[in-house]
Nucleic acid binder design. Structure first.
Lengths: 192, 192
DNA sequence: CTGTCAAGACGATACGTCTCGTCTTGCGAT
DNA sequence: ATCGCAAGACGAGACGTATCGTCTTGACAG
């Protein structure tokens, strides 16, 4: 979302102030009530400075929240697939359930739902790495013989996170360890 | 969303006109660009008549789209679980992928993401029945011995639809038969 | 001297409330 | 049974507010 073009004379201070203001305001008021004018005011920045470098409220918000999140990390590899998956799934579930980051995550989600271009960025910089590292762990498990040779690891990774996302997004039930474990049990067993 | 209280004197004609206009406008312009004023204008109705009976744009849209959809239907029961699941999942995937109803479904989804009260309605009138009928089919499969006795059917149903929802919502890949089949393969195998 | 900056004026929408005068409807009196 | 009337729902749209995205200004930095 930041311009790819040479932002030669761009003020880094303003950029940071804008992203920080956006992050704070989203946490305080949520995405719907957030306005560009409020971001500009809190950042001590002219509106034009925002419009010059971003295309929309969603772009600013996504930019401000992405990179925030420790997501590219590889999954642990203790040798037992189910254990490692349980670990990540429990963590992910807890993170999504956490009230502190609920507002931010919801904001990012709405932004992504509304603008395909943002969805693209979100997928590449956020979701992609997470899915890839899960896929890698599954591949290593397959080499260890814990997963059937013909299993579709891509789909398996999606199914795992999809389950959490589904429940979280639509408020279908609690995102606790029990749920994470149940999903892992089902998928891990399906992969054998 | 419609008042539970005695809508004794409520004009059914206006109600229908509003819901129809909302449905059309969502399909034409999408949720974001939809305005209450446009709905009122197309429906030939005063704005107040909308505000009298609905609380928000989202409420009108959800009301206009819910009930539209043939969702409570029980799953087929041919005796083979995987076959039946494949059937529903393929159908669901195709439906979500269909351009004609994309706009509507996206609109409903955004509305639900934005307002917890709408999410409640959506879950009860739309999602609940779908999940329930999947769960029922799984229960019948369990009785037939095709599913492990200790399997969590609730979670399994969520995982199935969650996978489609995840891919659809975030645009992770094509929603084709191959994907539906892969998910079913994984879950059905996990349930044994 | 060219481009970014903060500040904010500007026209364009859309919001949600309100007021107006008209219609519709339920119900009690006839 | 029919009628008359009050309550209130209706279509229309004016109103003030909020936010949008653009545009203008003058300062100043490279």
């Amino acid at each position: 979302m930041t311009d790819k073009k040479p932002p030669v004379r761009r003020s880094e201070k303003s950029r940071q102030a804008i992203l920080t203001a956006a992050r704070e305001l989203v946490a305080e008021y949520g995405f719907a009530k957030l306005t560009i004018e409020a971001i500009a005011a809190r950042a001590g920045v002219g509106k034009q400075t925002i419009y010059r470098w971003w295309t929309s409220k969603g772009a600013v918000v996504l930019d401000s929240l992405i990179g925030d999140t420790p997501n590219g990390a590889a999954l642990p590899d203790t040798g037992d697939l189910a254990t490692d998956l349980r670990e990540v799934m429990r963590l992910t579930a807890a993170e999504m359930a956490s009230p502190e980051i609920q507002a931010s995550t919801r904001a990012m989600n709405v932004a992504v739902q509304t603008d395909p271009a943002l969805a693209e960025v979100y997928r590449e910089r956020y979701l992609g790495p997470a899915l890839a590292s899960a896929r890698d762990r599954l591949a290593s498990a397959r080499e260890a013989g814990q997963v059937a040779a013909d299993a579709d690891l891509e789909v398996a990774a999606e199914v795992l996170f999809g389950a959490i996302y589904y429940r979280w997004s639509l408020g279908l039930g609690p995102l606790d360890d029990a749920y994470a474990d149940a999903v892992v049990r089902l998928v891990a067993s399906g992969l054998r």
